[in-house]
Design a protein around this nucleic acid. Structure first.
Lengths: 204, 204
DNA sequence: ACGGTGATGTCACGAACTGACATCACGGCT
DNA sequence: AGCCGTGATGTCAGTTCGTGACATCACCGT
């Protein structure tokens, strides 16, 4: 028979989630998590680089974004981003309850918010890289990626706090539409319509 | 005569900067900083909430942004933001050398990058609040603030890595112009086609 | 049966913070 | 002048995070 109960990592994750929810992140020690998962503290650190990382297992998202960006039809950068984010939406929508719970924990703790921002920043890098692969110049790619994730933040926030009114995908679309209205409105919009496809426009 | 040398905080700040630059953030202990500043470790923590915070004394920036946003002429949101960021630019330009040095330290350490993102997020809140005060609805304000800071990130990055080609203010203006091109341009199809995303069907 | 491997345990430790209490120049008040 | 409150600092003890080094031992392939 096996020397240890299987899936130590899973048990740790579950224990951590429960405790963070129950007593709050700060009041939870790694020792407690380990004890509840019936492993040692050391084992916790073998599975997660730190106490926060348990909540941020989401590399799936980066993969979806990168893939969707790479395979999207030739479109203006913002359309590509809408496409990619829309593809990614189900990752959240499929486990809305868990996501909300997780978000509540994060909302209650500044350290966790920092980590979340870091994760989002890494998504920006991923997106920007994927856009560069599509031929965008580096500044445009960086800017488009930043704006995309910025819009996602707002859309996600609205989705979390606006239970079931709309899907996340709808919020994303609405938010990016709002972005267009925000940035376009006063100016005449058609000036740059020289028929070119995705923007090779340079940042003058 | 006085019991202690004056300006403990200033000495701590100086000592920390030097050590972070010299041996790196990780390799520097608070004990070392305190020793060099000729105070105790405890005193360090009385002046700075943690080891990172020494590098993020920048509440001046938030004040400038909030004030400039509040007093800007009535304009489209994005114009207000351009105005505010432009007002804030001198905060950096006036001490470009120090800013570059600081940025190098931050670039070398993920923990510091996390903190920086947190500070920027707090600027987003400040900006959004100021925009709401101007009468924008909460979602538009949040979105405009996110986009403004996103553009600022890109502009700042270009400024740091593009020594003296342009001023930060120029970069900001260029970047926000690029934002307009990114979001507005040439998407004549979008006006009538609010429906399906092209290419959606064959993206796994 | 044998030896290598990988997941876990054990131990020891440094370094980041924190709470509680002590000290004592300074500045104001009487 | 003398007393007193205050604020900045020191001292100390303790908790928790996170890591390196080494030990254990079921499992798996040969």
């Amino acid at each position: 028979m096996s020397r240890w109960k299987p899936d130590a990592r899973g048990r740790l994750e579950k224990a951590a989630l429960e405790l963070y929810n129950d007593k709050g992140f700060d009041a939870t020690t790694v020792a407690e998590i380990a004890a509840r998962a019936e492993v040692t503290e050391r084992t916790f650190y073998r599975h997660f680089v730190d106490k926060r990382e348990v909540l941020f297992q989401t590399n799936a998202l980066a993969d979806v974004l990168a893939h969707a960006t790479a395979t999207a039809a030739p479109l203006a950068p913002l359309e590509v981003i809408i496409h990619a984010l829309t593809e990614a939406a189900p990752v959240f929508e499929e486990r809305a309850e868990l996501v909300r719970q997780r978000q509540a924990v994060i909302a209650a703790n500044p350290e966790l918010q920092e980590r979340e921002l870091a994760k989002l920043a890494s998504l920006v890098s991923t997106l920007a890289h994927a856009l560069r692969e599509r031929g965008l110049d580096s500044t445009t790619a960086a800017l488009a990626a930043e704006i995309g994730i910025a819009a996602f933040k707002v859309a996600f926030d609205r989705w979390i706090n606006d239970p079931d009114q709309h899907t996340l995908a709808q919020h994303i679309r609405e938010t990016l539409d709002a972005t267009r209205h925000l940035t376009a409105p006063a100016e005449h919009a058609a000036a740059t319509d020289d028929g070119s496809l995705p923007g090779q426009e340079n940042v003058a």
